[in-house]
């Protein structure tokens, strides 16, 4: 064990004794960050449960106005991006620079596709007056239930919006990783940034895995 503070290198920072200790610390740090994210989204999941429990029918009707095929396709896009991400991490574990760059770029593109589709969906909502606010109108619901439908769309926009914000941050992180990977920063010995960014990306994927059924798939058989 090194008794003195040693010189800082890109691979090993001065506060750590060994690279293993450093890698463990970074991984643990990212997992702790992810549980803060669980609690962050947890607040909205609670709101969803409470309001869906109070307004089951309005939620089913409002949910049926979402395009389930676009939602499912976007889920597939995001799962593909997780797959490419895990292959990028694998490339980093093996120290294959080309592989890392290739799969990170693919992940970035898929993330961009997801966000593009999301933007298209949001734009549709604006045209259909399904955005909460004074101009909100949901056809086929009596005036006294319009507010309840707004409640569903408030949750829809808050949840998908904050999820999209996490995606945007993820895209930023990916861009940074690609730039660094091209320079050859990462090797089999030092790939922690790729590894922990992968954890973040998969976590954002998991959030969507729950958002998709909760927002798009409520009692479809009633709505159609």
């Amino acid at each position: 064990m090194a008794s003195e503070a040693h010189a800082e290198t890109p691979a090993l920072r001065e506060q750590f004794d060994t690279e293993e200790q450093q890698k463990d610390a970074s991984t643990l740090g990212m997992w702790i960050f992810l549980i803060t994210e669980i609690m962050f989204f947890g607040g909205m999941f609670l709101a969803y449960i409470v309001y869906r429990g109070a307004n089951p029918l309005v939620f089913a009707v409002a949910s049926s106005s979402l395009n389930v095929y676009i939602g499912a396709a976007n889920t597939v896009v995001l799962l593909c991006s997780s797959f490419t991400m895990v292959l990028a991490v694998r490339g980093a574990q093996l120290g294959q620079r080309q592989t890392i760059v290739l799969f990170l770029i693919l992940t970035l593109i898929l993330g961009g596709v997801f966000l593009g589709v999301k933007a298209y969906e949001w734009n549709e909502k604006f045209q259909e007056h399904h955005v909460p606010g004074p101009a909100f109108h949901f056809e086929g619901l009596p005036p006294e239930l319009q507010g309840r439908a707004q409640l569903f769309f408030s949750l829809y926009f808050a949840m998908t919006g904050l999820h999209a914000l996490h995606m945007v941050i993820g895209v930023g992180i990916l861009s940074l990783l690609i730039w660094q990977a091209r320079k050859g920063t990462y090797s089999a010995a030092y790939m922690t940034p790729v590894d922990v960014s992968g954890l973040y990306w998969h976590f954002v994927d998991i959030i969507w895995i729950f958002l998709f059924p909760l927002l798009y798939l409520i009692d479809r058989h009633l709505g159609k």
Partner: peptide, 20 residues
């Protein structure tokens, strides 16, 4: 790491169940 993940999920359950 597993403990951290389980702890996070447990706290989510606390938040939801006690609110309910």
């Amino acid at each position: 790491t597993r403990l951290v993940v389980l702890g996070g999920l447990l706290w989510l359950i606390i938040l939801i169940l006690l609110s309910l």
